[in-house]
């Protein structure tokens, strides 16, 4: 374990520029994950109530033509 953590430290946090990049990338990724996760929870709670759940009843099939 200490070997892994120290090598992680050496790769990502040793140099200041690299650490800044790590911070920004982590913020971007975590934000994406957080938003996607909270949206998924919201959709699960509101299952069947939202427009996207009832949309299929009203969208006319495009292949009729």
């Amino acid at each position: 374990m200490p070997g892994i953590s120290s090598s992680l430290y050496n790769i990502f946090l040793r140099r200041n520029t690299v650490m800044l990049g790590t911070v920004f990338a982590a913020a971007f990724g975590l934000q994406l994950a957080f938003d996607a996760g909270s949206d998924r929870i919201w959709d699960a709670i509101n299952k069947g109530r939202q427009w996207k759940d009832i949309k299929h009843r009203y969208v006319e099939a495009p292949e009729e033509e």
């Binding site: 919201w42 709670i45 509101n46 109530r49 939202q50 427009w51 759940d53 009832i54």
Partner: peptide, 11 residues
Amino acid sequence: WFKTFDHQALR
């Protein structure tokens, strides 16, 4: 606090 509108009811 965690519920949206029932969109069928909105319609």
